[in-house]
Each structure stands twice: as C-alpha cells, then as structure tokens.
C-alpha cells in the first residue's frame, strides 16, 4: 500500500497515510461515536477512511488529542483509556498491549476487539502517546477479518507520526 505524507495544518503533526484513503481534517462534527466511542471527548484532528471496497466496515484511522493534567502518568492514563473503552463497547477482548516510543514520545499500543451490531467483530489498534501536557491517540479500526490487509499500513503510519511546530514548513 503506497503511503503519502500528510501534514495537518493546525494541529501540529504529520504522518504518512495510505494514498488512496480519504482524509478529513478537523472532523469534530462527524458521526463517529459508534466506531470510536472514546473519540467523543477528544479533539479529533484527522480522520482517514479506506475507500469502500465492499468490506463490512471500511477501515478508519483517527488522530485525536486531549489536554492532560501535569501530574498524569503514562500507565494510569492508558489504564483509564482501556477502562473507558471497556465500558463503552460490547464484548471487549484485549489481544495485546505493549509500551512503545513514537517520535521519542512514550506511549502504549493496544490491540483489542469488540462487537458491533450488524457488522460483527471489529479490531481496534490504538497508540496512546504522551507529549507533555497533551495526550495523542491514534486509532485504527477495521473489521477483524480485514485487519491483516491494513495492519502494515497503519503501523507504518504511526511509525512516521511526528509532532511539528505550528507554522513550520
């Protein structure tokens, strides 16, 4: 899958995204809660949607950020995020969780599955990154049987995630 670098004009980040995916910036008015319930409280900066290819659920990648209290530590923030996810979706199954570093930012990657009515099993891979007083969340959602088709591209997108100064070229 070809990736092209996408720079967000105001949120201060860039990441490579699959070239064919449709990108929507600052889509806070989009009806996304069913796919990513936690995103409701976060400031969604970017949504990238896989073109509809007849799959049960086109894959969606969401980049969001939220203000974090100065005292917030990484592990409790990740635990809270997972607890909120558990409360807001049906039949959450945690496949994997590991600490990661992206662009020098400490974080965690979690791989979970939950059930969505009329769709079936959905796999959510999520990276939670702590950047000072701001928490960044990158979520990739897809039908579970379609996960192998996008896993490499979404991992590459996150590996290329960079925070950039506002107004930087």
């Amino acid at each position: 899958m070809d990736l092209i670098l996408s720079s967000h004009p105001s949120a201060g980040f860039e990441l490579p995204l699959p070239a064919s995916w449709i990108q929507i910036e600052a889509p806070n008015d989009l009806p996304l809660p069913d796919l990513d319930p936690d995103a409701r409280d976060a400031e969604i900066a970017l949504v990238a949607v896989q073109p509809d290819g007849g799959q049960p659920l086109p894959a969606v990648l969401v980049v969001a950020s939220e203000p974090i209290a100065a005292t917030t530590q990484l592990d409790p923030w990740v635990d809270t995020n997972l607890d909120e996810l558990r409360r807001s979706v049906n039949r959450l199954f945690v496949v994997d969780a590991e600490p990661v570093q992206v662009d020098g930012l400490p974080g965690w990657r979690t791989l979970t599955q939950y059930a969505v009515e009329d769709i079936g099993a959905v796999t959510l891979e999520r990276w939670l990154l702590l950047a000072g007083r701001r928490g960044w969340t990158i979520s990739a959602v897809t039908g579970t049987l379609e996960y192998p088709e996008i896993a490499e591209a979404t991992s590459a997108a996150v590996a290329g995630f960079r925070l950039v100064a506002h107004g930087a070229p």
Binding site: P56, D96, I119, T144
Partner: peptide, 21 residues
Amino acid sequence: LHPSFLPEALAKLAALGPRTR
C-alpha cells in the same frame, strides 16, 4: 458464531493475550 468472531474464539482457546516482552 459470526465468522468474524472466529479469531477471538480461537485466541481464547489458545489463551492468547497480552504478555510481558
């Protein structure tokens, strides 16, 4: 079960889950 839940069913039978690296 719905076929999309097969990976979960198989993973649970095999006790797949997060582990310390």
